[in-house]
């Protein structure tokens, strides 16, 4: 019955656009969208570069990237914490416990997924396409663009995966964000705190919002794909 009661309360919180719930959800979205966009800007070209170049150890590199798909979020959290703590090498930037460092942490977290899945996406394209482009006089960059466009469904899927991992993770957000109310509190860290406080309604409401956001992002990206 607790679940039922919580669910009803949660829906009330959402329908009434409860300011606290909206603020937390908005922040989650901002941080994870920023991380996904920035990481994509780096990873999509980088993945094409890896895919189109030939160098010794390429297979091993791809294996390594794929291994890092499953790196624990808390391991990234610890790494970023040590890096940005005032006593750490990047401590002078004074970024620990800010939304900025959460974006950086999530970027690091999803980089392997974006790289690995983009490389897979490119691998799925008919080899004749880049060959044709080149024979028609396309430059390397133009060829890469043509192939990326052909692979766009799978590439968008990679970006969705990256975003999904970013917005759903709690380890990095908690360790380097510090879960500061009104500043670094996001959906997952709020759920973790509220559940531990026994405040299940807010947790359920935030959980529903998290899933709704995921659904909306998927719908939007699917629409883009079909253009």
């Amino acid at each position: 019955m607790e679940l039922w009661h919580g669910l009803i309360k949660a829906i009330e919180l959402i329908i009434s656009l409860d300011p606290e719930v909206m603020e937390i959800a908005g922040r989650s979205l901002q941080i994870s969208v920023a991380a996904t966009v920035l990481a994509s800007l780096i990873c999509l070209p980088l993945a094409s570069l890896i895919y189109f170049s030939h160098f010794p150890g390429k297979r091993a590199l791809i294996n390594l990237i794929q291994t890092f798909f499953s790196i624990p979020t808390v391991a990234i959290g610890l790494f970023v914490f040590i890096l940005f703590s005032r006593a750490g090498p990047m401590g002078g930037l004074n970024l620990l416990f800010t939304p900025t460092v959460m974006v950086i942490g999530q970027m690091i977290l999803i980089t392997p997924i974006l790289l690995g899945l983009t490389i897979s996406a490119l691998s799925g394209i008919d080899k004749a396409i880049p060959d044709t482009a080149r024979s028609l006089g396309a430059s390397q960059l133009q060829t890469a663009t043509v192939v990326l466009r052909e692979a766009r469904f799978a590439v968008v899927a990679a970006v969705i995966m990256g975003f999904g991992r970013a917005i759903s993770e709690v380890g990095v957000a908690l360790m380097v964000g510090g879960n500061i109310k009104g500043f670094t509190r996001v959906i997952t860290t709020a759920i973790s705190l509220e559940t531990s406080k026994g405040d299940l309604e807010l947790s359920i409401a935030l959980g529903i919002i998290l899933i709704t956001i995921a659904l909306l992002v998927n719908l939007v990206l699917n629409r883009i794909q079909q253009r």
Partner: peptide
């Protein structure tokens, strides 16, 4: 909390 203090965070 003490550890955060030691690290100056």
């Amino acid at each position: 909390a003490l550890e955060y203090g030691i690290r100056g965070d």
